[in-house]
Amino acid sequence: QSNFCGSGATNIVLNNTENFIEYQLRNDVDNSNIGAPVTGNASTINLPTGTINETTTFNISANNPATGCSLELSDLFTITINDLPTATLSGDATICEGETADLTFNFTGSSPWNVNYTDGTNSYNFTTFDNPYTLTISDAGTYALTAISDANCTGTDISGTASVVVNDLPEVFLGNDTTITTNDTLILDAGEGFSSYLWNDNTTEQTLTVNGTDLGQGNYDFSVEVEDVNTCSNSDTINVSVESGSSVNEIGTENISVYPNPTKSIFFIKGLNTENINQISIYNANGKIIQELKPNSENQEINLQHAASGIYFIRITNRNGTLYFKILKQD
């Protein structure tokens, strides 16, 4: 064997040796002797190299003890010692859902490198000629190396981890597309608790007042972008159609209220005129209806016990129009 990883020991095999001739293995750099001479036997002998830790070229001298004459054989023998590859990993990052982070792998050794790593749950593998190598990821996890090999050897020196945290995007919902009249004012609410708000008219408050009189008849899009404490942002858009006529929010009472708000499970809608109300709908921040009912009491009870915590919207409709409320469900 002429190639080793890290270190190695082997025999230089010499054929057709002569009887009584002493053969000495030497380091070709300075002709220093390696081990003791081996006497020829008219056949094959082995000259041990001993343990070597770096690439070494050997020569062989032949000495006749009877005459004291010696000569250096023409053949040279090279034993190659390849360094064991190493790998390090870095790239701690905190990102928002939909963003990416870069993990950096640094190597020693000879390309290509074959790398095994884990995200703390699953195992992965790649091969690269690049050093350093950048891997772009989007999933959260604690990334760590598990194995490294290069073109020649398998290494054991692997180090470093990268913790990647992926924060959820903030949830913002302006409600379903709706219709008002030129007599109406609609307040769009992006929700509380965000670090910043930016509406499409460049205002920066939590709410935006839509005035049907100022807009006139037509269809209008209103959008808002919110940012949370993790600097993650999200946006939503609502279409408001403005029609001429009496207010679509005239639903037979001016005294409707929702309480308690926030609620842990049960809340009440107070002040309903049950003869005029066609339907009450409860839907979540994604616009999915989770309850629909026709009220049977002026103080209608609604139970959100089995609903997840978050913001919900209440839509009350009759033949004259629609009214919206927002309620917060807490654990």
Rank of each mutant, 00 (worst) to 15 (best):
L14S: 12
I256L: 09
N276M: 15
D236P: 05
S241A: 10
Y324G: 08
I52Q: 04
I266P: 01
I282K: 04
I180R: 06
E72Q: 14
L89D: 11
A36T: 15
S233N: 03
R319K: 15
A307H: 04
G98W: 10
T55A: 02
E97D: 12
N276C: 05
L328W: 00
N318Y: 12
P295R: 04
T237A: 01
Y117D: 07
F77H: 14
I45Q: 04
T181Y: 08
Q217R: 11
G321I: 10
S309E: 15
G91E: 01
E227W: 09
S196L: 09
Q217E: 14
L208A: 13
N41S: 03
A140K: 02
G35R: 05
S241R: 03
S70D: 10
S247D: 09
W113A: 10
T86L: 03
V165I: 15
E298F: 11
Q24N: 06
T94M: 11
I60S: 07
V210D: 03
N176G: 15
L14I: 14
W199I: 00
Q330K: 14
S138F: 03
I266C: 06
S111T: 14
T100S: 13
Y220E: 03
F107G: 00
N114Y: 07
V38H: 04
C153F: 00
I180H: 04
T88D: 09
V240F: 06
V240T: 09
G68R: 02
N59I: 04
I277N: 00
N200L: 02
T55N: 11
G155N: 02
S149R: 11
G141V: 00
I282F: 02
I21Q: 09
G120T: 00
N234P: 07
N299I: 15
T156A: 12
T67H: 06
L169M: 08
N211F: 02
T86S: 09
C232Q: 08
E171P: 08
N106P: 05
T142K: 05
T57C: 06
Y143S: 00
E225Y: 09
V226L: 04
G160M: 02
I180Q: 11
V165Q: 12
L272P: 08
G35F: 06
E171M: 14
P48W: 10
D214V: 09
N303I: 10
N116K: 13
I289W: 07
N219A: 12
I148S: 10
A147D: 09
N106D: 13
E292T: 15
W113D: 03
T142D: 13
I282V: 12
N234T: 04
Y197P: 03
N249R: 15
V38R: 02
S196P: 00
F58P: 01
A36I: 13
L14G: 02
Y124K: 05
F173M: 11
T142A: 12
K288E: 07
L84E: 04
I314C: 05
P170R: 03
K329V: 06
G216I: 10
S7E: 15
V224F: 00
P37W: 09
H306W: 13
F129Q: 12
Q217T: 15
G252F: 12
F267N: 11
S61M: 13
N53H: 09
A93N: 08
N276D: 15
S281F: 03
N261A: 08
I158N: 07
N82W: 13
F20E: 15
N276V: 10
D331S: 12
D130W: 07
S195Q: 14
S43W: 02
E205G: 14
T57P: 01
I282G: 02
N31I: 04
T128S: 01
T51K: 13
